[in-house]
Design a binder for these strands. Structure first.
Lengths: 236, 236
DNA sequence: GAGTGGTCTAGACCACTCA
DNA sequence: GAGTGGTCTAGACCACTCA
């Protein structure tokens, strides 16, 4: 662990256990640099991470303050790591039901999002994800077979991301998402066990490897009463 | 504008007009530092902003690469600045219809989110926002009267955020949002001009000042066919 | 004027990748 | 071994806030 990570962790601890009062600013950067025996830039970097997590905010010429709402219940979890349901719901029992699994030529839309041509086959997977016995999400995923090889029913019953990372040795670095509300369809009624007038929360996603190449294009349709999405936005 | 902002802008321009090929890495940090006559740390900072916008990704020991999908249509706009509809839709004609405007004692829920007690009055505002003549969003907003003073019908017909910044001299720094799909209600049918089985995309938001104090608690209900929300997520 | 955070420098050493 | 980005230093000067 780097210095700035260790310092961020320590300062976070002091915020949570109220070593630092939320009425006064936390110690200034020069004092912290001297306490931790690092340069001021390193302190700055450590505090940057806490600011982006929504725990601190800074005011030039004034000081660095604890965001009041930190004490107002549990700290809001930023959903930056939300790639793969298996990771989000760690500790809960997740089962998958495979509704469709085949290989096909991509539609124009899929080809464009995966940055491949119309002749490159893709896996087409539709999975129902069941959390603690309750239907939760229907995921429709397209992945180029050339890039993501070795997908089997067994892999689909576990975590596809784990397969990509551990078996294929590829690094997933980012995803672009579009979130929308959508009317439910027959497929939703059947598998998500929802009413005809229940909406679903749909997330369209393109996932990228560290090479910059997209490896998946997916649509996840969530039960509207079981899923919300939260973000923290900082104004620049 | 700072050096790192100018450099980020220039590099972005070169990515978009294809001065830099997406097949090779862009010039290394030391070359860029020498070209722009700045230190390497400043180049790093400039590139950091483009990485977080999803245009570049870096690979230690290898180089800095253009994310392929940058050419795949218009650049994805990151919705970090999306505080206030007036800002998001700059250039479009936005009208507001005031559906409700009163002062009340907060419910338990509102008081908790605004971090005030049950005896502190709040403004309660329901506005329909009309974009280019089409109903778009219904916003229900609660703001403490003590903190956000001087709200009038005239202010509500314009931008509340502008009033907060320019008239009250307060700095808005962040917001916490929860996004969900929701069934439409009678109020939606009437004002958003939507069908009984149309869903809406609801965003629940707490907005914060730079003091860390929440200044608004709001629910925005968007027509599902007129609004999507996009994010770029980096895996840590 | 004293104290704060924001930007920037010119270097150092390191970890990783590729040939 | 050569080249890349990651971390870190010890300073400098500046903009802003408050008294």
């Amino acid at each position: 662990m780097n210095k700035y990570q260790r310092i961020a962790q320590e300062v976070k601890k002091r915020i949570i256990d109220k070593t630092y009062s939320s009425d006064d600013p936390i110690p200034d950067e020069i004092s912290l640099a001297s306490e931790f025996r690092v340069s001021r830039m390193t302190i700055k970097r450590a505090l940057d991470t806490l600011v982006s997590e929504g725990l601190l905010n800074r005011k030039r010429g004034h000081g660095t303050f604890i965001v009041k709402s930190v004490y107002n219940g549990p700290v809001n979890v930023v959903v930056n790591e939300m790639l793969g349901l298996t990771n989000v719901l760690r500790g809960k029992e997740i089962k998958s039901k495979i509704i469709a699994f085949d290989v096909q030529f991509p539609s124009e839309e899929v080809a464009a999002h995966l940055f491949i041509d119309a002749n490159s086959p893709v896996y087409h997977v539709v999975r129902l994800r069941i959390v603690e016995g309750e239907p939760y999400v229907i995921e429709r995923t397209y992945m180029p077979t050339k890039l993501i090889s070795g997908i089997t029913e067994q892999v689909l019953h576990g975590s596809v991301y784990k397969h990509i990372k551990e078996e294929l040795g590829l690094n997933i670095v980012s995803s672009h998402r579009t979130i929308r509300a959508s009317k439910s369809t027959e497929l939703d009624w059947e598998h998500l066990d929802c009413g005809a007038d229940d909406p679903v929360l749909e997330i369209e996603q393109v996932g990228y490897l560290d090479t910059g190449i997209p490896f998946e294009y997916s649509f996840s349709r969530h039960r509207y009463d079981k899923f919300v999405f939260t973000t923290v936005n900082r104004i620049r």
